[in-house]
Amino acid sequence: MNIKVETLNEIKIASIDGRIDSTNSGEFEKPIIKTIDDGCLKMIVDCSGLNYISSSGLRVFLAAQKKMKALSGTLLLCGLQPAIKEVFDIAGFSLIFKVFPERDSALNSLSQ
């Protein structure tokens, strides 16, 4: 798994590539939580390169969303591949996360 965090004005965009499972969910958690701890209140996680996620990975998304909510910030997801979307849907995460088809529509939503 690779994670890259870019900055666009006050928005942070984290792009993930590869798989997130119990062996590497810590590597995914650290930069995401650190970005929020560093004061970011608008964040997009671009999942277009994510091709597998286990429950350990879902836990990180949930932890990030809880943290963001507590700070009244916004965390958006975009670019979920169909298999990932299905995992999110089954878990009921579609009720907790705003999901956009691609990065631009997520960015648009944040700039409104």
Binding site: L58, L62, K66, I90, A91, G92, F93, L95, I96
Partner: peptide, 26 residues
Amino acid sequence: GHNPPFIISDGNVIKLEMTEGIILGC
């Protein structure tokens, strides 16, 4: 939030319809 189970009936396998649900604990 769990994988929908299957019903095996007379050689047919049917995925059980989901209920609107969410994982417990969040």
